[in-house]
Design a protein around this nucleic acid. Structure first.
Lengths: 251, 251
DNA sequence: AGTATTTTTCTTGTATACATGAAAAACATT
DNA sequence: AATGTTTTTCATGTATACAAGAAAAATACT
């Protein structure tokens, strides 16, 4: 017998949770839009009960907010972009450091698998798929760090950042991209992939300082692209980067 | 009209959530014990629906875990004590730094209020009350840091640590304490209170480095006491403190 | 007696029905 | 016509009923 998928399919609320989460992260559900329980229940062909459970789960994950009695998809105001950057940068550094110190051989295998999956999708994947593979790669690193508290914090920040990137880039379909935009995308993907490889090397070498530095670079690359998309080429008036990169010393 | 408390008392699930949370944090509900929905529903004289909502909320907060279909109060295994310490130390440092940089005059007032409340309870409060006041004091600091992501991470760690302390100290009632224990407690409370005052001073002076140092001291004091309680006077075999205290440079 | 199997019970997951409060729409009044 | 009031509608919160699966208990068989 297979044992896991054969006949026990209880806790269907999890399915709805996953589905809604996907929809929110891909911005198929737009920030600020209301989550109508009845409508969702109809869409998934279940009663309202599992829907409510999923919504509560999403609320405590930060992807949904309550305004009075209605549940809204969490807004994506760019006001707190500096906060997001700070938190993502710090969590990323910590997680990569810890991974470099604590990784096992199994961890390396997992990370490499995810990394190659991302590389593969750089050729023929959709933006959503790449975003997902990217997230899995970084979470594989987080798992290697062996600290569930840092991991879950990091995951939350990655999810938040993922939505931001979706909002800035993925709204235009591939077919509608201009040649320049296409070139820029490919160049960015190549750079990202290279950084992934170097990060894995550092973790494999147990070089925490190097992993830290690379994590900073990686985050800065990612956010710099975001900044350009949001504010054009203008860097002024955007005072993120409030935590010093060269901090968080060796252990 | 008062507007907030007069007649709209909907979302009773929140009440149950608060109640259960209290019970878990104070260890009235022991780690590992099962949460029987029907039983709790009877206790609170409501149906199972709001109970389930509360439980889901608690699960995503880390205070309750699912094992198969049953919900258990999150276990307090001391295996991951190093993880907890690392995460608490780092979040504490960051939050105190940020508070020192971003605090307003209102923030200072809030922090001072909470601080004095804690001091008051050092004289004639229960362990639970003090723990609560302590948490509110530190969360007031976190609020002053103006980064909701760091704040919520910090809160989670404070909650976890709070349960640990309850587990180690609060299980013995005040009446049962020996004179030596009583003296040790008072000495600890005095030291804690003094650190609070110095932390507030540093934040008021916008001295981020000092706030950082004091946060480290504060956490080490707290955890050293925990260690003594858990492992006696023996510090060996307990390899927490894995993140260097003198890290996370200035901004 | 010990173990395997069946039956029973109990707890959770889901659906539906009802209550309540809020927003919107219709109406009336100035 | 504009505004204030009333009514209606609709979404959410809660309760209850039912279904299903798992643990426990009882029975039967070796």
């Amino acid at each position: 017998m297979t044992g896991t998928t054969t006949k026990k399919m209880n806790r269907g609320g999890e399915k709805i949770y996953q589905g809604l989460r996907e929809d929110i992260l891909c911005l198929r559900l737009k920030p600020g839009s209301v989550l109508d329980e009845a409508a969702i229940a109809a869409r998934y062909a279940v009663s309202r009960t599992p829907i409510r459970e999923a919504i509560i789960h999403l609320i405590s994950e930060g992807l949904v907010e309550r305004h009075g009695r209605v549940a809204l998809v969490a807004s994506l105001n760019f006001d707190n972009l500096p906060s997001i950057f700070d938190a993502l940068l710090l969590s990323s550094r910590v997680v990569n450091r810890e991974a470099a110190c604590n990784r096992t051989r199994e961890d390396l295998k997992n990370i490499r698998t995810k990394m190659l999956e991302f590389d593969r999708l750089c050729g023929d994947g959709s933006g959503v798929q790449r975003q997902d593979a990217n997230l899995e790669f970084h979470m594989a690193i987080a798992d290697a760090g062996r600290n569930e508290y840092f991991s879950s914090f990091y995951e939350r920040m990655l999810l938040t950042a993922s939505r931001l990137h979706q909002a800035c880039f993925s709204n235009q379909v591939a077919a509608e991209r201009s040649p320049e935009e296409q070139a820029e995308l490919q160049q960015h993907l190549t750079a990202t992939s290279q950084q992934h490889h170097r990060i894995l090397e550092a973790i494999e070498a147990r070089d925490a300082d190097q992993a830290d530095r690379l994590a900073v670079e990686h985050q800065e690359l990612s956010f710099a692209r975001l900044q350009n998309a949001v504010f054009g080429r203008n860097r002024d008036g955007f005072e993120a980067f409030s935590l010093a990169p060269e901090a968080l010393g060796r252990r």
